[in-house]
Amino acid sequence: MFENEEGHAFSLTDEPFERVPQGGPDLTAHEARAHEDLPFVWWVADLVMQRDRRAWWMRHWLLGTSSIRTAEVFELAEPILLVSHDDAGYWQLIGTSDADDSTGMVGHLYHAVDEDPTLIDVLDLPPGYSATRARVGDPWTRHRD
C-alpha cells in the first residue's frame, strides 16, 4: 500500500493499472505474442546485438549471468586472461594462477565487464568455446574446446 500526496491509501492494482491486461491496454498477452510486428521487433533486436558489442553486456546484465572466477581474479589481484563458456553454459574467468575448484568464487558476469571493459569482445562466445590473451590490451584468440 502507498499513500498519495493527500494521504489517501492506494495500491498498484488501483486505477489506472487494474484495467491494463498483460499485453498492454489494447492487447491481451496472447494477441501481443501473435502480433504481426513481432518478427520485425526481434529482427531489430538481433541486428542491434550484431552491431553493438555493448548489447551483449546488457543481455548478461538482464539475465544476471553468473561467472566462476579464480579468487585472484575475483579480488582483482590478477587480470582475466582466459574466458571459458563451457558446454554446460557456465562462464569461467581465469588469470595467471591455476584454476582450483575449491577456490572458485561466483559473481555476475557483468561486474567483471564493468571492471575490465575489454571482456565485451568475448561476451558472444557460444557454449563450448574459450578465449585467451597474453595480457590486458592484447586481442582475444578464440578456441573451440
Rank of each mutant, 00 (worst) to 15 (best):
P25G: 04
T103N: 08
R142V: 15
P127N: 07
Q50F: 00
G107C: 07
R135M: 11
L82A: 04
D98M: 15
E15R: 13
E72Y: 00
V73P: 00
D121I: 04
A71N: 03
H85C: 10
A134K: 06
M105W: 00
D138K: 05
R133H: 13
E5N: 03
W43G: 10
T70C: 00
V122L: 15
S11V: 15
T132E: 14
E72A: 02
I80D: 02
H60V: 11
Q50P: 04
T103C: 08
P21Y: 12
S66T: 08
V106W: 10
A29G: 12
E6H: 10
A112C: 03
A134I: 09
N4M: 08
L47A: 10
Q50I: 03
P127Q: 07
T132A: 13
V122K: 15
A134Q: 13
S102F: 05
G24V: 08
E18S: 12
M49T: 07
P25D: 08
L82M: 09
D124V: 11
G23Y: 03
V122M: 12
Y129N: 05
P25Y: 04
P39Y: 04
S67D: 08
V106L: 08
D14W: 01
W42V: 12
D101E: 06
E18P: 01
S97I: 15
L109I: 10
D138F: 05
D98V: 15
R59Q: 09
V113Y: 00
W57Q: 15
V122S: 14
V113S: 09
V41M: 07
S84P: 04
F40E: 09
V48E: 02
T28P: 02
L62E: 14
H30Q: 07
A29L: 06
A77K: 14
P79I: 02
D116C: 13
E72F: 00
E75H: 04
F40C: 05
L62G: 13
G107D: 03
M49A: 08
E36P: 04
F10Y: 14
Q22H: 08
M105K: 01
L47Y: 04
S130M: 11
D145N: 07
Y110R: 07
H8V: 15
T103Q: 10
D114F: 02
D124Y: 00
Q50M: 03
N4K: 03
P139M: 11
Y110H: 10
